[in-house]
């Protein structure tokens, strides 16, 4: 059973603003970095936050609820009810979350590209609802 919280248009608008802010911050940090590797962990973390917020917008719009708590599997399962392809992108981002935010190994250039691809898909997806 996925734990959820009801959301209205105000919550949806607030989550959308955050998704766009995190995505804009990702793109700005990446663009102005001398070396993309220097900011990979920061960018991946921003992409994860953008993706989670975008996922909330999608489930708010289509189900009237968003995921509650920190269980990644539940958030992915909820989004899968709305869009299985976007749920795969969210799962990819959440896999990178711990590594980028808490691990000692730096995020790689491949992680960064995957994170951007997943974030872009989710942010565009939430603009379509």
């Amino acid at each position: 059973m996925v734990r959820t919280r009801p959301c209205d248009s105000h919550v949806r608008a607030g989550r959308r603003t955050k998704a766009e802010q995190f995505a804009d911050a990702f793109n700005t940090v990446w663009e102005y970095a001398d070396e993309p590797g220097d900011v990979a962990d920061v960018c991946v973390t921003l992409a994860v936050h953008a993706g989670i917020a975008a996922s909330d917008v999608l489930t708010c719009a289509r189900l009237g609820v968003h995921a509650r708590g920190d269980n990644h599997g539940e958030a992915v399962a909820l989004l899968r009810q709305v869009d299985p392809a976007l749920a795969t992108h969210l799962a990819a981002l959440l896999e990178m979350k711990s590594k980028a935010g808490y691990g000692h190994a730096p995020a790689t250039a491949t992680d960064l590209k995957r994170a951007k691809r997943a974030m872009d898909a989710l942010v565009i997806g939430q603009r379509l609802v």
Partner: peptide, 18 residues
């Protein structure tokens, strides 16, 4: 349109909220 956009169950109240 609401039901077609999610492979999920809805109460009538949830449909109304949307």
């Amino acid at each position: 349109n609401v039901l077609a956009h999610a492979d999920a169950t809805f109460t009538a109240s949830r449909v109304h909220a949307l």
